[in-house]
Design a binder for these strands. Structure first.
Lengths: 128, 128
DNA sequence: ATGCACCTTGTAGTGGCTACAAGGTCAAGC
DNA sequence: GCTTGACCTTGTAGCCACTACAAGGTGCAT
């Protein structure tokens, strides 16, 4: 499988895959006679893993850790749980922040009387 | 007022203020005899405006627009309202995404039996 | 005179991609 | 066999909003 096909199968782009390779998240695959990257099911699975973790908001560093943990199936999954739980707490914090922010924005927009900028509530709030 | 004092009054850093100047968000202030930036209440108000807008999640480009709109108080505030409403919708979208993400993460972490990595639900979910 | 906090400019790095440019490869159609 | 066009290659630079230096200048207290 060439890079474009792998990209289509994983909802990525060839550029992103090459970027993952550059940064060491993916290993260098074998090449065809014409110097094209040649991917098999192992790489497909690894990239799917990476994309799922990234879609769940894990950072590249966390993905790296999760990958190396998943490579040693006999180990305790404590470390995995701790990465995921930490991330969950982080997401909760962000949710809280975003909800507060939404409330403020909502008030601001609701109070706008659609008049002149001079008495615009939005501008007033921002100007303090 | 020197840059450090302005930074403390606005919850920023001198670096960020200089960055805003470089990118044209703030104008170049007058200088003291020793070539130090010398800020007055106008610049303080402008920076406060910028920080409030940034804290509400507006991008630098949006802040730029809001600033130039607020400079012309006789204009209709339609444009201001549209920037803010668009941003509100964007925040709503992000909130939705984050809530979905949180649910998935929560399930993943809750299902983890704290055993070996080999049968870790978190890794299984990621591996698909 | 010395120390120290603060300031100056300039450059480079962060994360996670994304967007080129300039050229090589390969299968299909004529 | 020759062209077209889709795909691939490497390399470099850009995005956002900062952040982190390095190397040197200023200003005030001791």
């Amino acid at each position: 499988m060439k890079i474009g096909a792998l990209a289509r199968k994983t909802g990525t782009t060839a550029e992103t895959i090459r970027y993952y390779e550059r940064t060491g998240l993916l290993e260098e695959p074998p090449r065809t006679a014409g110097n094209y990257r040649d991917y098999g099911p192992t790489e497909l699975a690894r990239l799917r893993f990476i994309r799922r973790a990234r879609d769940l908001g894990f950072t590249m560093a966390e993905v790296r850790q999760l990958l190396s943990l998943s490579d040693d199936p006999s180990q305790s999954c404590e470390a995995v749980d701790s990465i995921a739980s930490l991330h969950l707490r982080e997401v909760d914090r962000k949710l809280g922040d975003l909800r507060k922010l939404r409330t403020e924005l909502r008030h601001m927009v609701d109070d706008c009387q659609h008049g002149a900028v001079g008495e615009c509530r939005i501008i007033e709030v921002l100007a303090g």
